[in-house]
Every structure is written in structure tokens, then in C-alpha cells.
């Protein structure tokens, strides 16, 4: 299905967030996920189904002032 990941459209096979992270080779351990502008807690990554057109933001810590 077609979804938007970090602002870019992608064709993905995964149907859930944890599978999406694996499919896109995210290997780090410190992520936060927003699904359609709402935070999706880590405890729900395995159970939340993805829908075509979903907007997913994959966020990590970075330098800031």
C-alpha cells in the first residue's frame, strides 16, 4: 500500500508499524512515532494496523538549542 513516511511517499508491504520499521531497515532503539499527527506509543506499534494514505513520522533525538 502507499503511505507517507517522513514526508515521502512510499509503497510498502508492511501492515503494522513494527513491521514497517523492519522493512525500512530502522535498526536504532530510540524512536518515537506519529501516525496521522497523533503519537503512537511504542506499546501499540505491534498492534496498530496501517491504512493506505497514512502519514507516519519516525522521530529520533537530535541536537537542539
Amino acid at each position: 500500500m502507499r503511505v507517507t513516511v517522513n514526508g515521502e511517499q512510499r509503497e510498502i508491504a508492511a501492515t503494522r508499524i513494527d513491521a514497517l520499521l523492519s522493512e525500512l531497515a530502522y535498526e536504532g532503539s530510540h524512536f518515537a512515532i506519529a501516525l496521522n499527527f497523533d503519537v503512537l506509543p511504542k506499546s501499540r506499534w505491534a498492534e496498530t494496523p496501517l491504512q493506505p494514505g497514512d502519514e507516519i513520522e519516525i522521530i529520533t533525538p537530535r541536537q537542539g538549542g
Partner: peptide, 15 residues
């Protein structure tokens, strides 16, 4: 202070 930014696929910058 720290910030949050998008992580590119396969990236480990945040970690």
C-alpha cells in the same frame, strides 16, 4: 536542551 528530528531509513543518528 535537545530536539527531535526525522530519522532517515537505516539511520542511527539519533541513537
Amino acid at each position: 536542551t535537545v530536539s527531535l528530528r526525522r530519522e532517515a531509513a537505516g539511520g542511527k543518528t539519533g541513537d
